[in-house]
Amino acid sequence: MEKHTATHLLNWALRQTLGPGTKQQGSHLNPERLRFDVATQTPLTPEQLQAVENTVQEAVGQDKAVYMEEVALALTTQVPGLCSLDEVYPDPVRVVSVGVPVAHALDPASQAALQTSVELCCGTHLLRTGAVGDLVIIGERQLSKGTTRLLAVTGEQAQQARELGQSLTREVKAATERLSQGSRDGVEAHRLSKDIGRLIEAVDTSVMPQWQRRELLATLKMLQRRANTAIRKLEMGQAAKKTQELLERHSKGPLIVDTVSAESLSVSAAQAGLPQGLGRAQS
Rank of each mutant, 00 (worst) to 15 (best):
T5W: 01
A6E: 04
L9A: 09
N11P: 00
N11Y: 05
W12Q: 09
W12S: 07
Q16K: 09
Q16L: 04
Q16E: 10
L18D: 10
L18C: 12
P20C: 03
G21I: 08
T22Y: 04
K23T: 13
Q24R: 07
Q24W: 01
P31C: 01
R33A: 14
L34C: 06
R35F: 06
D37H: 02
A39H: 08
T40V: 15
T42H: 14
E47R: 02
E47M: 04
Q48A: 14
Q50I: 02
A51S: 09
V52A: 06
V52P: 07
E53D: 10
T55D: 03
Q57A: 10
V60H: 01
V60W: 02
K64Q: 13
K64S: 08
A65T: 14
Y67G: 07
V71N: 02
A74K: 06
L75S: 12
P80H: 11
E87Y: 07
E87M: 06
Y89D: 13
Y89F: 10
R94T: 08
V96C: 03
V96H: 03
S97V: 08
S97R: 05
G99K: 00
G99V: 01
G99L: 00
G99T: 02
V102M: 02
A105R: 02
L106A: 07
Q111S: 05
A112W: 01
A113W: 00
A113V: 02
G123L: 05
T124A: 09
H125L: 05
L127T: 12
L127D: 14
R128Y: 03
G133K: 08
L135P: 00
V136L: 04
V136N: 03
I137G: 03
I137D: 02
L143A: 11
K145P: 00
T147W: 00
A152M: 06
G155H: 08
Q157K: 06
Q160L: 10
Q160H: 12
A161M: 08
R162E: 11
L164C: 05
L164T: 14
S167G: 06
R170W: 06
V172I: 11
A175E: 13
A175V: 04
E177Q: 14
R178K: 13
L179Y: 10
S180M: 12
S180E: 11
Q181E: 13
G186V: 14
V187M: 13
R191T: 15
K194L: 15
K194A: 15
I200P: 10
A202F: 03
V203K: 01
S206Y: 02
V207G: 05
V207H: 08
M208D: 10
M208P: 08
Q210T: 10
W211P: 07
L216C: 11
L216G: 10
L216S: 11
L217F: 08
K221S: 15
L223I: 10
L223C: 12
Q224Y: 11
R225F: 11
A230Q: 14
I231H: 04
I231V: 14
K233G: 15
G237S: 08
Q238M: 11
A240H: 08
K242L: 13
L247P: 03
L247T: 07
H250T: 15
H250S: 12
L255K: 05
V260T: 09
V260L: 02
S261F: 02
A262G: 06
E263T: 06
E263G: 03
E263C: 03
E263N: 09
A269V: 09
A270I: 06
G273A: 03
L278W: 08
L278P: 04
G279W: 05
R280H: 10
R280A: 01
A281I: 11
